[in-house]
């Protein structure tokens, strides 16, 4: 099972000062899959992202990427280079850079200081940035500072930056937070579009958004998996209803 998986969690536990953020979490994401992760606050969604991206080391358990690469031994930069991109809950872009520069910095290229010191933008890279600008619909704002974008546009720019990294797996934390209904629907379309070529893990609270994605859902609760299946399947599960509504 591990060999054929893209992302493989087995018995992963993380505690902070006695609080068990992840409790023997096991989870498998297949290559090319899009998966939605839901769960109440404190269920361990963000900690799971932190473990995948190397920000937090698990106390125990295994985390493998692509079947063979042990993520628990790598730092953030190495994991990013490996092909895992992360979008934060709060849109995080480089505010004092232009939209164009934000994308240029994210573009897949050598990451060392000396490579960037003498870097000259090649035509192919330029074309790639143009494509991305079109995809995230920010072509007309390319020379504007990212600080001047609306909240939704920042979310999109950040997704564009993720794509510029050309990751195999995208981790997207609450992409629809703070978006209008129209923006939410467009974001769902965008993610489905991205999923044609890449695997995506979406953490989200918004049920209409999850429905719009129409993918397999994993419900986390107190650091482990409570239920897994289609949105209709999990929302009829009694324990899930209790976790979400009972308290």
């Amino acid at each position: 099972m591990r060999q054929s998986s893209l992302l493989y969690f087995d018995g992963v536990s993380v505690s902070f000062d006695g609080f068990r953020a992840l409790n023997s979490l096991s989870l498998v994401i297949e290559p090319g899959e899009m998966r939605a992760i839901i769960g109440p606050n404190g269920a361990g969604k963000t900690t799971m992202m932190d473990v995948i991206t190397g920000k937090t080391r698990p106390d125990s358990g295994e985390v493998f990427f692509g079947g063979a690469t042990d993520l628990t031994r790598m730092d953030e930069a190495a994991i990013a280079e490996l092909g895992i991109g992360r979008k934060f809950q709060k849109p995080t872009v480089f505010e004092s850079h232009t939209v164009w520069d934000n994308l240029e910095l994210a573009l897949k290229a050598p990451r060392g200081p000396f490579s960037t010191l003498f870097h000259v933008l090649r035509p192919a890279e330029r074309a790639r940035i143009e494509d991305l600008l079109e995809l995230i619909r920010l072509g007309s704002r390319r020379d504007d500072l990212a600080a001047n974008l609306s909240h939704g546009q920042k979310q999109w720019l950040e997704i564009g930056m993720l794509l510029a990294q050309e990751p195999q797996l995208l981790l997207v934390d609450e992409p629809a937070a703070g978006m209008t209904d129209a923006e939410t629907a467009e974001t769902a379309d965008l993610l489905r579009d991205i999923n044609k070529t890449r695997s995506v893990v979406v953490v989200e609270h918004d049920m209409t958004f999850i429905r719009a994605l129409g993918v397999k859902v994993t419900v986390l609760h107190e650091g482990s998996v409570l239920a897994e299946g289609s949105i209709d399947h999990v929302s009829s599960d009694e324990r899930v209803v209790e976790v979400y509504l009972g308290r």
Partner: peptide
């Protein structure tokens, strides 16, 4: 240079820069 842009990126959002690799 692009290195300079990375420096400003570090100044503005260090962890974002890290997660970009």
């Amino acid at each position: 240079s692009k290195l300079g842009k990375v420096l400003v990126a570090v100044r503005d959002a260090e962890s974002r820069t890290r997660f970009l690799g």
